[in-house]
């Protein structure tokens, strides 16, 4: 068994820049989901590289608000499971992901070191800026 995931720093991070000035700052920081380092071009490259067929399953692990899994699923037609620990991150991404993907997206709160998912379930996994 693992000790609980230590994501307290992230939990605090997701509570920052939620004010009006914070929203302007995030919007001016570039990218469609500011705070992440993956650019739109890089996410498009990922979508082209993983080559998922419509309906295939994609896991975005340590997804935060759901980027770049959202764009990859949008471009490929894949179904997306978006997993992270801080519920606040999932909450902040929910409306946007629903709008982009409708019923093709599931958000799950969970520890990426011990996923409650059977072997061989996904055709592709993306994992951006999580490793530490």
């Amino acid at each position: 068994m693992h000790p609980p995931a230590n994501t307290r720093l992230f939990e605090e991070k997701y509570l920052r820049f939620q004010s009006e000035a914070g929203a302007r700052f995030r919007a001016a920081s570039g990218g469609s989901v500011p705070n992440g380092w993956t650019t739109v071009e890089q996410a498009e490259w990922m979508a082209a590289t993983v080559g998922l067929a419509p309906g295939e399953r994609l896991l975005d692990l340590g997804a935060g608000r759901g980027w770049p899994g959202e764009l990859i699923a949008q471009h490929t037609g894949a179904q997306l499971l978006s997993v992270d620990v801080p519920i606040e991150a999932l909450r902040q991404g929910r409306a946007r992901m629903r709008e982009a993907l409708g019923a093709r997206v599931w958000q799950v709160c969970g520890d990426g070191r011990a996923l409650p998912i059977g072997d061989g379930h996904f055709s592709a996994v993306c994992h951006t800026d999580v490793l530490c």
Partner: peptide
Amino acid sequence: MLRECYRVLRPDGLLVVAAIE
């Protein structure tokens, strides 16, 4: 976490990782 990624991927499934290193 990479081992978990491996486990839940189907054979020949692809993993994309981005990281600051």
